[in-house]
Design a protein around this nucleic acid. Structure first.
Lengths: 212, 212
DNA sequence: CTTTTTATTGTCCCATGGGTCAATTCTTGA
DNA sequence: TCAAGAATTGACCCATGGGACAATAAAAAG
């Protein structure tokens, strides 16, 4: 009974059970290795070394390699997501919400090549890992919903949908560029790029209604 | 002397030397394996099997695994590129050139999840493979130049640059979406999306000059 | 203080994969 | 027809990696 209380995932603030700490350390280590080595070069041994532990411990906390990297993906996404919702909380108008999502996705200390490299490696495994695919769908759904919370006030439902797709694609594409050619796109450039996209699409809409 | 003539890469039509055929077969096989297995699961044995040959032959034609996949990347890019330049030849106006690039990048039989999966896996290795990085830079440079050949007639140099970056990022992002969630974006949607982006950016420009 | 979980390590196993090599078959040109 | 070179194979080597496990250390519970 007492163990049940300790095991409960109810208290999100102080989940300081040792096993939780280790698991977090390990999935962060996994991510760090991914940044350096890519999915093809990521091994349990390297993850263990990165975490300053033995390989055995990794498999003690994660059933297998796959599960470990699935959790690494969750971790990375959580960080990204946190940046967005923090800004989203402070946003009042629809346009501010859009900007919150956009700027949150390019936060200075996150919009960096290594993070992108790791993320790319994870994405590359999505097609062969149903769990990762599911995580990916969740991520995209939340992104979409965040964007629509702003776009609903700015465009018709159908168009909002379309613009949301465009914004997500553009954001992903800019991340990819950063990953493929570090330094080829700055945080400011990226933000401006997406904002211009939104402004352009909305301008198009105004022109159409004005012309009609 | 005669061998030199035969070895020359001058004649692009009839490079039917046996070794050229094998090399092409093998890098195509490598790409096919990449589609199925991803970079982490791609092995020389599987590539050999895919090509209906032995592992030895793969290493006979390519120094090592790395080189093989570098060539696979070249191959894949060549196909994509070909689609674009074919359309580009028929384009007369700047706008037609833009559409040529856009539509070429989403050609029906190319804009497919498997191709994207393989492409993703290759991109994920770019940060750790200087040769691939170089190929990547070349690809991007050509893409940019193709776009600018149209954009120069539509916007100021500075803005053309910026729009070109946006278009490439958007295209990449839409490919990524297709790869992560097959079926989530159709060819027509993708084309429309990018065209709208361009139209929007240009509209923005007109509004600015009209307002001033 | 003892018993029972839990954490952690190091060792072992075995399959796989990259790469080498010698041996063999096939081409081709003289 | 025959010799030289290219194509192709299969066997072999060795390092590595994922995973199982037993043994030990550390905590927690009673």
């Amino acid at each position: 009974m007492s163990t049940w209380i300790r095991n409960a995932w109810i208290d999100p603030v102080k989940l300081k059970r040792l096993s939780d700490i280790r698991r977090k350390e390990l999935r962060q280590a996994a991510f760090a290795v991914l940044e350096r080595e890519g999915i093809a070069g990521a091994t349990l041994e390297k993850v263990a070394a990165q975490a300053g532990a033995s390989k055995g411990i990794v498999l003690h906390y994660f059933r297998n390699k796959q599960e470990l990297f699935e959790h690494a993906m969750r971790e990375a996404n959580a960080v990204l997501c946190q940046a967005v919702i923090a800004r989203l909380r402070r946003a009042r108008t629809p346009m501010e919400r859009m900007d919150a999502v956009i700027e949150g996705n390019f936060e200075e200390h996150l919009f960096q090549p290594p993070l992108c490299h790791a993320w790319l490696s994870l994405c590359a495994e999505v097609p062969r890992d149903e769990k990762m695919a599911r995580i990916q769908r969740v991520i995209h759904a939340r992104m979409r919903s965040n964007l629509l919370s702003g776009l609903r006030g700015l465009a018709s439902p159908g168009e909002a949908d379309d613009i949301a797709l465009g914004v997500t694609a553009l954001i992903d594409g800019l991340w990819l560029r950063l990953g493929l050619q570090p330094g080829s796109v700055s945080r400011e450039q990226a933000v401006r790029q997406v904002k211009n996209y939104v402004a352009g699409r909305l301008a198009l809409r105004e022109l159409a209604t004005a012309g009609a």
